[in-house]
Design a protein around this nucleic acid. Structure first.
Length: 487
RNA sequence: GGUCUCUUGGCCGAGCGGCUAGGCACCGGUCUGCAAAACCGUCUACUCCAGUUCGAAUCUGGAAGAGACCUCCA
């Protein structure tokens, strides 16, 4: 089946065709590691995790590169170009790399919990200073950069006049930008306010610095992605992803840099996930309205009514299309939590089904529809709606409202295994070495309760049920016997 | 100010001109000692105005509201 991807470059869904047959190169902008990852960080990670998983499902061999930004982003122009990492380090009296290492680990731990597969390569900006310097040289050679007081700037105006390309991704008009760009301090080195730094000279107190032909300093805002994507994926690769908020100026500038350094654009397909909002507003560092992933997992943030498991967060995110904004609320998360539980219960209960000779359900068409939805720009909410359809089918079979034969039962099982676990990356969370022991213990109590019920000792029966419930073990009296699950 | 996007039922969220999205909540029923779970059934929609069309949530124009980017941000 043909895969269609919405390409920000053309604002259209396009048929996906990799540069090299059967192989895909994908680069995604990762986090800046100077703080704990929040819900917003989970969105691109999960979005492109799905893209990766699905491309592999389709049979592609994919190299997926997601960077770690541990240097280079300017706090703002007013503080003389102090590095974000360095600023935090001074405040906490730690080495900058100590900060970066700490938050990198925290980020990866959170991603592991969300069952986000680790990319093929996770390069860090600080490990690629030499590569970045080489790109600056190339751009200088091309004539689209200039040196000013030890720093190197990209000449946006000249680039645009010659190529008419600055703005092709973000639809921005350079002429307008020149008039609307704000007057900020520290801009005197630039020929033009729209120019951006390729290399920045470090002030004396700046502790993150590397030698270069121009000054002791650090690389500019957008350079690392150009350098690292080029190093690991080549001058041209298939997919470049990231958050919508990186569209401009970050990705626009990446294109400009590649164009000047290599003579062409870096990526064929640009994918952007939309933002997560809170109270209708973007959740972000600058607004200070973010809730960290750890806070979700532990329920410690004051806006959270309870803790939400990593899988609930993942499912919540997948229930919306990646190009739509997604609004956070306790109500929405709890709805996702309950829905996910129902889905996983049904998946688990498939083992209880006894096949019949006849079959009244159609499994094949459901899988076809899921393929169709995923091939239409990764429409996970549609896929999930079909998974719920499958869950209803399972429950109906168990309730004897429908019948299924062995062949379709096998098909249904493998369908759910593949789509829930492999493609959507959702897993049950009751995995523990102690499970066989717990199962035995609970069944023993269930037997005691059955005795009480046989004697019509309802008080005793309810007491056992309530006490188990208090421990998070839920008893379900079904027609076919008693089952239990952990809440 | 410039560029762009969005507005769907109690909540979240699909939908891209005709055909039930789905989840959660609510209500009624079956089952149950009671409850939960499951199943059956029911109820709430497309911001407003005008147009195109046999037919519009879906296309066009206008109005109102919300948001994103233009500054580090996923």
């Amino acid at each position: 089946m043909d895969l269609y991807i919405y390409n920000t470059l053309t604002r259209n869904k396009e048929l996906f065709k990799p540069i090299t047959e059967d192989h895909v190169g994908m680069y995604v902008c990762g986090p800046t590691v100077y703080g704990d990852g929040h819900l917003g960080h989970a969105r691109p990670a999960i979005t492109f995790d799905i893209v990766w998983r699905y491309l592999k499902h389709l049979g592609y061999k994919v190299r997926y590169v997601r960077n770690i930004t541990d240097v280079g982003h300017l706090e703002n122009d007013a503080d003389q170009g102090e590095d974000k990492i360095a600023k935090k380090a001074r405040l906490e009296q730690l080495e900058p790399m100590e900060i970066a290492q700490y938050y990198t680990k925290r980020y990866l731990d959170a991603m592991d919990a969300l069952n986000v597969l680790r990319p093929s390569i996770q390069p860090s900006a600080s490990g690629h200073i030499i590569e970045q310097i080489e790109i600056v040289k190339k751009i200088l050679d091309s004539g689209y950069a200039y040196i000013s007081e030890g720093s190197v700037y990209f000449d946006v105006l000249k680039y645009h006049q010659d190529t008419n390309k600055y703005g092709i991704l973000s639809n921005r008009v350079v002429e307008d930008m020149l008039q609307t760009t704000r007057d900020l301090e520290g801009q005197s080195e630039k020929h033009n306010p729209a120019d951006f730094a390729l290399w920045k000279k470090a002030s004396p107190e700046h502790i993150m610095r590397w030698p270069s032909p121009w000054s002791d300093g650090f690389p500019g805002w957008h350079l690392e992605c150009t350098a690292m994507s080029n190093k690991y994926l080549g001058e041209r690769f298939d997919i470049h992803g990231g958050g919508l908020d990186l569209l401009f100026p970050h990705h626009e500038s990446e294109i400009a840099q590649s164009q000047c350094a290599f003579g062409h654009e870096p990526a064929n397909y640009w994918m952007h996930n939309n933002m997560i909002t809170i109270g209708g507003q973007k959740m972000g560092k600058s607004l200070g309205n973010f809730i960290t992933l750890d806070e979700f997992f532990t329920g410690t943030h004051k806006m959270l009514e309870k803790a939400y498991s990593p899988m609930t967060i993942r499912f919540f995110i997948l229930q919306a299309h990646y190009r739509s904004t997604l609004d956070f609320s306790n109500e929405a998360l709890q709805a996702a939590e309950k829905g996910l539980k129902r889905l996983l219960e049904a998946h688990k209960n498939i083992s209880k089904i006894n096949p019949s000779k006849e079959c009244t359900v159609d499994i094949k068409s459901i899988e076809d529809k899921c393929m169709e939805a995923m091939c239409d720009d990764f429409n996970t909410p549609i896929v999930i709606s079909y998974l719920f359809e499958a869950a209803t089918i399972i429950n109906k079979i168990i309730d004897s409202h429908e019948k299924i034969n062995q062949e379709n039962l096998d098909k249904l099982k493998s369908f759910l295994d593949v789509w829930i676990n492999d493609i959507l990356g959702i897993k049950g969370e009751q995995n523990s070495d102690m499970m066989p022991t717990i199962d035995g213990l609970v069944k023993m109590i269930i037997e005691l309760r059955a005795d009480a019920r046989a004697n019509k000792d309802w008080a005793k029966s309810d007491e056992l049920r309530d006490k188990l419930a208090a421990l998070g073990v839920k008893i379900k009296d079904g027609k076919e016997g008693v089952t239990w699950s952990i809440e």
